[in-house]
Design a protein around this nucleic acid. Structure first.
Length: 162
DNA sequence: GCCAACGTTGGC
DNA sequence: GCCAACGTTGGC
């Protein structure tokens, strides 16, 4: 019997540059879990703060590497809360405008769930039927946090395993 | 509120 | 390293 959380589960795509933080880094982290911090884009912030919930699943996408693509799946294990790196003057993501009583930026916690047998490259995704409307594939798409539809999710998981 | 200038992202 | 596309900033 599905719980409410399962029936309302949403899907996302989280971008990262593997030279900064890779899926393998996440896999090796304590409890395979880390905070997904440092996002400094308002649209992405709104999703982290308001929409991404514990129990949701996310593709982890490697950008600025060769090849680029989706490398695995993570589960959201904590919904949005203030991004601590914004408060730390020594952090590269420090933002003096973000106050603890009125945070500008948010993060979630994610846990590695599954690494794909091989990367599902951007080039390959462009050729998969059913993904024509995917945010990632739109021209000029730069969002580091993106919604993924249930249909897109299933299609990509099938492609990854097929 | 417009929009030019600037900085960043990210595929290639 | 190039550069198109996009987001943000700030002068007016």
């Amino acid at each position: 019997m599905p719980t409410n959380r399962q029936t309302s589960r949403n899907y996302w795509l989280l971008k990262t540059e593997p030279t900064t933080f890779s899926f393998d880094d996440l896999w090796k982290a304590p409890r395979r879990t880390t905070s997904w911090d440092g996002v400094r884009n308002f649209q992405a912030r709104n999703m982290l703060r308001d929409q991404i919930k514990e129990g949701d699943l996310a593709f982890i996408y490697h950008s600025s590497t060769d090849p680029t693509g989706i490398v695995g799946i993570a589960e959201v294990v904590r919904s949005g809360y203030p991004d601590a790196t914004a408060f730390d003057p020594k952090d590269s993501h420090y933002d003096p405008k973000s106050k603890k009583d009125a945070p500008s930026w948010y993060m979630v916690d994610v846990k590695a769930v599954e690494k794909f047998p091989e990367i599902v490259t951007l080039e390959r995704l462009r050729g998969v039927k059913g993904l024509e409307g995917m945010v990632l594939l739109r021209k000029g798409s730069r969002l580091s946090v993106q919604p993924v539809t249930a249909s897109e999710w299933d299609t990509i998981v099938r492609a990854a395993k097929g």
